[in-house]
């Protein structure tokens, strides 16, 4: 089957006679826009970047570019040793109808996977630092590592559990064990679940980056949780036992008499599960709130309090 002919020059937005420098500049400019590491989770940017990468791989290599200029989309077949296409190939291809001249279709060749941003792990760029032989052996043809995001609630991250994921580009689902105690920014590696390798070589890995949804009650600080608790002025003065939420349910908290606004009370061991056992703490920050409206009786009592109290908050 004939594939769509790719115009690598158009992909990079340069003229056919563009210099190496112009090609490099065009690539860098577009790469800044579409690079997957700058657009995490954006599939269309990733696809754009793959095309860009493919175009640049070809046009930045003098030999490949020459073949591409001469044979168009069939250049890989020629390079792979199939020899130049038979006479009339160009006319047949451009006519877009009927069998190719001599029944020969270069697009029937399987050239395997193109190199892409994730594949090869940047081996080429490090030659200057690491020497030319670095990484060329066992990693050759290894599938690309794939990165994806997995959004979890705070409760899911705390308790862990199993999640079934449907991968976009694959028909299979993957069941993932979420370990209790993962955090925002944690990464889970699923060995061998990335892109397939070429010629039977090992597949890449799947890296799942954990993102925690903001929680309506708690903010997270390391292993600890923090929440704000509103209390009445008299609870602050007299102390009180109040119910407060924890990640595992409600517990009773003793607010000491004379509590101050902004004071943090610790609930030891009520924070998040840690990866290696143990738990963080929960901190309850007190906020003294006053009623918006007061009844006549309340007002009378406040006025009585004002009369008898010797407390001067500004002294």
């Amino acid at each position: 089957m004939a594939a769509n002919i790719k115009d690598y020059y158009a992909v990079l937005g340069v003229k056919r006679g563009a210099s190496d420098d112009e090609i490099k500049k065009a690539y860098r400019k577009l790469a800044r826009k579409f690079h997957p590491d700058l657009n995490p989770g954006d599939k269309s940017a990733e696809d754009q970047f793959k095309q860009l990468q493919e175009a640049y791989d070809v046009l930045s290599n003098a030999e490949d570019r020459k073949l591409y200029d001469q044979y168009g989309d069939n250049w890989r077949a020629v390079k792979a040793g199939a020899g130049p296409p038979p006479p009339g190939w160009e006319r047949a291809e451009r006519s877009g109808s009927g069998p190719r001249a001599g029944g020969f279709d270069f697009n029937d060749f399987d050239f395997g996977r193109f190199s892409s941003s994730g594949g090869g792990e940047g081996f080429d760029i490090f030659e200057e630092l690491f020497g030319g032989a670095r990484g060329r052996g066992p990693h050759r043809g290894r599938g690309r590592d794939v990165e994806a995001e997995l959004e979890l609630s705070l409760e899911e991250a705390h308790r862990g559990g199993r999640r079934t994921l449907q991968m976009q580009a694959a028909e299979n689902t993957i069941e993932v064990n979420i370990p209790a105690g993962v955090r925002d920014g944690s990464t889970i590696r699923l060995a061998g679940q990335g892109g397939g390798g070429t010629n039977g070589s090992e597949p890449g890995d799947l890296y799942l980056h954990i993102r925690l949804r903001p929680h309506p009650v708690f903010t997270v600080s390391g292993d600890d949780l923090e929440m704000e608790l509103s209390i009445a002025p008299w609870e602050a003065v007299l102390g009180a036992n109040v119910e407060v939420p924890t990640i595992d349910g409600k517990v009773e908290l003793k607010v000491p008499a004379g509590a101050k606004a902004g004071q943090r009370l610790r609930l030891r061991g009520q924070g998040l599960n840690k990866r290696n056992g143990g738990r963080g703490d929960e901190y309850v920050r007190l906020k003294v709130v006053v009623p918006k409206e007061v009844s006549a009786e309340e007002r009378r009592l406040y006025e009585e309090l004002k009369r008898v109290s010797r407390f001067n908050p500004r002294s």
């Binding site: 792990e121 940047g122 081996f123 490090f126 630092l129 690491f130 670095r134 990484g135 990693h139 993957i174 069941e175 993932v176 064990n177 370990p179 944690s186 990464t187 889970i188 590696r189 699923l190 060995a191 061998g192 679940q193 990866r275």
Partner: peptide, 25 residues
């Protein structure tokens, strides 16, 4: 179902990391 490797907090020597990423120590 696939076995997951969760051990990304695992301490590695610089030699091992270098070998994985194909760099020098």
């Amino acid at each position: 179902m696939w076995a997951a490797d969760f051990d990304l907090d695992e301490p590695l020597t610089c030699d091992v990391v270098a070998a994985i990423v194909g760099a020098r120590r």
